[in-house]
Design a protein around this nucleic acid. Structure first.
Lengths: 216, 216
DNA sequence: GGATAATTTGACCGATTGGTAAACATTACA
DNA sequence: TGTAATGTTTACCAATCGGTCAAATTATCC
C-alpha cells in the first residue's frame, strides 16, 4: 500500500530524485513558454514522458510543481548580483556583471522566461521574495554603487535604475529572443550575436557611467 | 433573423463600434496578464460585462479577438520608432525616443505586456510582422544611426543592439512593473519614478554614445 | 405601428482541464 | 525469497474550456 505522500519527504529514494528532476525539467520547458495559467499538467507529463497521475504522484498539484520549480531556479538566478563586489574596481565589476547576466540569458533562457512570465502576471507566486530578499540584495548593491559615485569612481546616477537597466538589457536577449532573431535575421544567431551584444552593452554602460571629470 | 456574421463588415452600426471597443478593451486587460493560452473567453466576457455568446457574436473565436486586438495595438506601438528622424540632431533624437518609449510604458503598460507575452510564447501570431515590417523599419533606422556614427556625431556602436537596449530598458518599466515597485518600495511610484528613470536613461545613453573625440 | 434586421441570452455540446481512486507492478531489504 | 514500501497505470470525476443554437429581445426604418 502506498504511503501518504506527506511521508515522502522523510526519506528520498533514487527514483524520486530522478523523476522529480525529470518533471521539473519538463515543467520548465512548458511554464517558461505559456506561463502558469496557460500550461497544462498533460503538456508537462507529455514532455516528461510519463503519465499524468504519475506526475501527480510526485507533485500533488500544478501549483506545487510551479513552486518547486521557482524555488529551485531562484537561487542561481540571483547569483550574478550576489557576486557583484564592493571591493572590486567599478569598471571591471560592471563589465563582468553584464557578462554574467548575458551568459545566463544565453545559457538559461527558459529560466529567464519563467520569471518574465511570472512578472507579467503580477508575480503572484514570488511577490514576497521580491519585496524581501531581492529588495534587500538590491538595496545592498545600490549602496555600493552610490559609494562609487560619491567617491568619483563613476558618474553620479540612480543606482536602482542602473541595476534595472542591466537586468532589462541582458534578459531581453532571452525573453525577446524571437524578436531579436527576426530583426537581425537568422544568420546573426549563435555566438556572434552574443559577442556583439556584450561588446555593445559594455561600451554603453562603461562610457555611460564614466565619471564627470573623465569627460571632455 | 440574424444576418450571417460575414455580412457584418458591410455596414458597421453604432452598437457594433461600441461593443467591439468594449470587448477589445476587456481583452487587453486579460490577454496582457495571462497571455493567449492562459486567458479564457469567460474571463473576458466577465470584464467586458457581457455574456459569452454575445462576445462571440462580435468575434467568432478567441483567436479572432486576439488578432483584432494585436492589429489595433500594433500601429501605435511602433509610432515612436517611426518618428525617429534622420535629419534631427542625434542627441535630441535619442533623448526624445527614450522619452516617448518611456511614456508609452507608463501610459500603455497593458499593450507592452501584451507584446511581451506574445514574445515569450515565440510570437506565434506576429512572427511575420516581426520579420517583415518591423525588420524593415529597424533596418532603416539602424542605417540612420550608423551614418551618425560614421560622421562622428555619436560613438561607433552596433545600431541594432542600441535599439534593442532602448526597447528593453523602457519597456521594462511596464513589463516588470511589479518587480520595480517591489524593489523601490511603493513610496517611489507615480511620476517621480518615471522622472528618475527618464533622467537615468537619458544620461546613460547620451554619455554612453558620446563620440570618441568628446571623451577625455 | 409594424416589419425587418440586429443584438442578446440561456441552455447546451463535446473536448479538455486539474485531480482522484484503486488496482497493478516494481523495488528495496530482511 | 518473501513482503512491505514504493512507483505506475487505467479508469474515472466534476469543473471549465471554446463554441453553437434557437429563442427572445431590442433597435431601425418605412
Amino acid at each position: 500500500m502506498a504511503i501518504p505522500r506527506a511521508a515522502k519527504t522523510l526519506r528520498r529514494t533514487r527514483i524520486q530524485e530522478e523523476k522529480e528532476e525529470q518533471i521539473l525539467e519538463a515543467a520548465l520547458d512548458v511554464f517558461s513558454v505559456s506561463g502558469f495559467r496557460g500550461s497544462t499538467i498533460d503538456q508537462i507529463a507529455d514532455v516528461a514522458g510519463m503519465s499524468k497521475p504519475n506526475l501527480l504522484y510526485y507533485f500533488r498539484t500544478k501549483e506545487a510543481m510551479h513552486r518547486a520549480l521557482i524555488d529551485r531556479v531562484l537561487y542561481n538566478w540571483l547569483e550574478p548580483l550576489r557576486a557583484f563586489d564592493a571591493e572590486g574596481n567599478p569598471e571591471s565589476e560592471i563589465r563582468s556583471y553584464i557578462r554574467r547576466k548575458l551568459e545566463m540569458a544565453r545559457d538559461f533562457p527558459r529560466e529567464s522566461r519563467l520569471f518574465a512570465n511570472e512578472m507579467l502576471q503580477g508575480a503572484p507566486h514570488v511577490l514576497d521574495m521580491l519585496k524581501g530578499p531581492l529588495k534587500e540584495l538590491v538595496d545592498e548593491k545600490a549602496a555600493v554603487i552610490r559609494a562609487w559615485a560619491n567617491s568619483g569612481k563613476i558618474a553620479h546616477c540612480d543606482p536602482y535604475h542602473l541595476i534595472f537597466s542591466i537586468w532589462s538589457t541582458t534578459q531581453h536577449y532571452a525573453d525577446f529572443d524571437v524578436q531579436v532573431r527576426a530583426v537581425l535575421g537568422e544568420e546573426h544567431s549563435g555566438d556572434g550575436r552574443f559577442e556583439d551584444a556584450a561588446r555593445f552593452l559594455e561600451q554603453l554602460f562603461i562610457n555611460g557611467l564614466l565619471p564627470e571629470h573623465a569627460r571632455g
